[in-house]
């Protein structure tokens, strides 16, 4: 009996490894190898080893695009946190039958393709769109706002698209938060601000970090939102990679950019991992 179950355990673990090997390790290896090859106008790549793809990245234009992407992803993460925290807190604190309904509402947008939702945002933001029509009708403005095809539009799109990734881990964390801590703090004479800063934030930090990682990473590599909402004016790292592959036909450069981004993000996770306590780690895993 025991032998049998351990056989299945070994088998299933090996299947997982095989799966990861085929669908994660091989593409990553291919990407990594390609980044050291040379561009060939007539084929996908030429098999000549070089480091020139990486040297090219020090080009001023690429560096500034990287900085822009980090800024956008960072801003997006902070805004998601500011909106998502009270949101998750309210859901987690509301009566259980309400909270499951509210959670459902958070998840519903996932049922529609993110691309389609981005088009919907275009419809809202454009000069003759829903938002402007409303504001004009209410008399708050007398000229349509030019939001679409701006940095602001990209930011709105990113926040809208990624907000659930912030809310869900925060909710999972805040839900476990024992309300007695709030009463204990109040009992000891803490006002709500002290309670929030000294008790609530530290105790929900694992959720804050998990949510931030889940928002920041995809925000770094967004490519269709900047194109659709930013009107290709606001090129980001994701667009750069897409451009190298599909337009410039420079796969080695595209893969080199990908490798650098992956390393950057990996470094970020590693820094968090080593600074976090064991308990928080379990929560992230």
């Amino acid at each position: 009996m025991k032998k049998k179950s351990s056989f299945f355990k070994i088998l299933s673990i090996n299947i997982v490894w095989l799966w990861l090997g085929i669908f994660a390790l091989i593409p990553i290896t291919l990407t990594f190898v390609t980044s050291f090859l040379t561009q060939d106008p007539n084929a996908i790549v030429k098999f000549a080893l070089t480091l020139s793809n990486y040297w090219e990245l020090f080009n001023h234009a690429y560096v500034s695009i990287l900085i822009q992407s980090i800024t956008l992803a960072g801003t997006c993460t902070v805004i998601c946190l500011i909106i998502g925290y009270p949101f998750a807190f309210t859901i987690a604190r509301s009566k259980s039958k309400h909270s499951s309904l509210l959670l459902l509402l958070v998840v519903i947008p996932f049922w529609t393709s993110s691309l389609i939702r981005t088009y919907a945002i275009m419809a809202i933001l454009k000069a003759k769109g829903i938002l402007n029509a409303m504001l004009l009708a209410m008399g708050l403005i007398d000229q349509p706002l030019q939001i679409l095809y701006s940095y602001l539009a990209v930011l709105i799109g990113c926040v809208y698209d990624l907000l659930p990734f912030m809310i869900l881990p925060l909710y999972a964390n805040i839900e476990k938060f024992n309300e007695e801590y709030l009463e204990a703090a109040q009992d000891l004479g803490a006002n709500w601000l002290t309670t929030f800063i000294k008790v609530v934030i530290p105790l929900t930090m694992p959720g804050i970090i998990a949510g931030s990682v889940l928002v920041f990473l995809p925000a770094m590599t967004m490519f269709y939102i900047p194109v659709l909402l930013g009107g290709a004016k606001n090129l980001l790292v994701g667009n750069l990679v897409e451009y190298q592959f599909l337009t410039a036909n420079n796969w080695p450069l595209g893969t080199a950019i990908s490798v650098v981004i992956s390393l950057l993000m990996g470094a970020m996770i590693a820094v968090y991992w080593y600074n976090s306590k064991e308990k928080d780690r379990e929560e992230l895993a």
Binding site: E180, Y181, A184, A185, L188, G189
Partner: peptide, 26 residues
């Protein structure tokens, strides 16, 4: 002051900081 059934000690604080919490608030 109240002693809670589940104690409600702040898990991220040391014993000292837990005990000092009320005084610091004041």
């Amino acid at each position: 002051n109240m002693v809670f059934q589940s104690y409600a000690l702040f898990p991220h604080m040391t014993v000292y900081d837990n005990v000092a919490f009320g005084l610091r608030c004041k």
